[in-house]
Simulated scan of single mutants.
Amino acid sequence: MAGNEKSKSRMEQVKGKAKEAAGRAVGNERMEAEGRAEQAKGDARQAKEKGKDTFRH
């Protein structure tokens, strides 16, 4: 289960980074902001999983 959540967080980060870059290239501020939000969501999920791992071991 934890591996699945970690991969989800990484995919959100990558997807967000790509969306942010695409928005910047096109000049679409909304897309750029959505990309940053997805990255933040992925970062939060990753931090949660790292916290779980800390208490698990």
Rank of each mutant, 00 (worst) to 15 (best):
residue 1 M to K: 10
residue 1 M to D: 09
residue 2 A to T: 12
residue 2 A to H: 13
residue 3 G to S: 10
residue 3 G to D: 11
residue 3 G to T: 08
residue 5 E to T: 09
residue 5 E to N: 10
residue 5 E to F: 08
residue 6 K to I: 14
residue 6 K to P: 00
residue 6 K to F: 09
residue 7 S to H: 08
residue 7 S to A: 12
residue 7 S to P: 00
residue 8 K to E: 09
residue 9 S to H: 00
residue 10 R to K: 12
residue 10 R to V: 10
residue 11 M to C: 07
residue 12 E to T: 02
residue 12 E to G: 00
residue 12 E to V: 03
residue 13 Q to I: 11
residue 13 Q to S: 07
residue 15 K to Y: 07
residue 15 K to T: 12
residue 15 K to G: 00
residue 17 K to F: 09
residue 18 A to E: 13
residue 19 K to C: 02
residue 19 K to A: 09
residue 21 A to E: 10
residue 21 A to I: 05
residue 21 A to S: 12
residue 22 A to L: 10
residue 22 A to F: 02
residue 22 A to V: 08
residue 23 G to W: 00
residue 24 R to Y: 04
residue 24 R to M: 06
residue 25 A to Y: 03
residue 25 A to C: 02
residue 26 V to Q: 06
residue 32 E to R: 14
residue 32 E to A: 09
residue 33 A to S: 06
residue 33 A to E: 10
residue 34 E to I: 02
residue 35 G to S: 00
residue 35 G to R: 00
residue 36 R to V: 07
residue 36 R to K: 15
residue 38 E to Y: 04
residue 40 A to G: 04
residue 40 A to K: 06
residue 41 K to H: 03
residue 42 G to C: 00
residue 42 G to I: 01
residue 42 G to L: 04
residue 43 D to Q: 15
residue 43 D to F: 05
residue 44 A to P: 04
residue 45 R to W: 04
residue 46 Q to I: 06
residue 46 Q to M: 13
residue 47 A to I: 02
residue 47 A to G: 04
residue 47 A to C: 06
residue 47 A to K: 13
residue 48 K to Q: 15
residue 49 E to M: 15
residue 49 E to D: 10
residue 49 E to F: 03
residue 49 E to S: 09
residue 49 E to N: 10
residue 51 G to A: 14
residue 51 G to Y: 01
residue 51 G to M: 08
residue 51 G to T: 08
residue 52 K to I: 15
residue 52 K to P: 00
residue 52 K to S: 07
residue 53 D to L: 14
residue 54 T to I: 15
residue 55 F to N: 13
residue 56 R to W: 09
residue 57 H to T: 10
